[in-house]
């Protein structure tokens, strides 16, 4: 990996972990704009059959066995950030221009 790409990862991931793991603990717990609107309009209850979420260790953004304190929130922020990053690095790897690829020899690519 080039130093450029490594630094992108380090700085970006650090920012995500600080925001998701620490800053988010101090977030407002009031309903968000859509939830509040649904409450105000008397439409807060689901009226259709929905799909159930799969059983996981998380209860929204806290860990089931750690409750809603700082650490449950921190684990949710860190694990969620890492999951999203891992998923996207995998997708990015699939989408990446490969050496010797026909797509890489298209004229539109030579300028970059």
């Amino acid at each position: 990996m080039t130093p450029y790409n490594r630094n992108t990862l380090i700085v970006g991931l650090a920012a995500a972990l600080v925001v998701g793991g620490i800053v988010s603990y101090f977030a407002s717990d009031k309903p968000d704009g859509l939830e509040k609107t649904q409450e105000d309009l008397g439409a807060a209850q689901p009226v259709h059959e929905g799909l159930d979420a799969p059983p996981v260790a998380f209860d929204e953004y806290s860990l089931k066995w750690l409750g809603e304190g700082f650490w449950g929130n921190a684990v949710a922020g860190v694990v969620g950030s890492l999951l999203v990053m891992g998923l996207l690095l995998g997708l990015g790897h699939l989408l990446r221009r490969k050496r010797g690829d026909t797509a890489a020899r298209e004229p539109s690519q030579s300028a970059s």
Partner: peptide, 18 residues
């Protein structure tokens, strides 16, 4: 590739901050 990875992680984290 790394940019999209960390931007995704950052936006996920930022969405937790109400």
């Amino acid at each position: 590739v790394p940019l999209m990875g960390v931007m995704g992680a950052f936006v996920f984290a930022a969405q937790m901050v109400n």
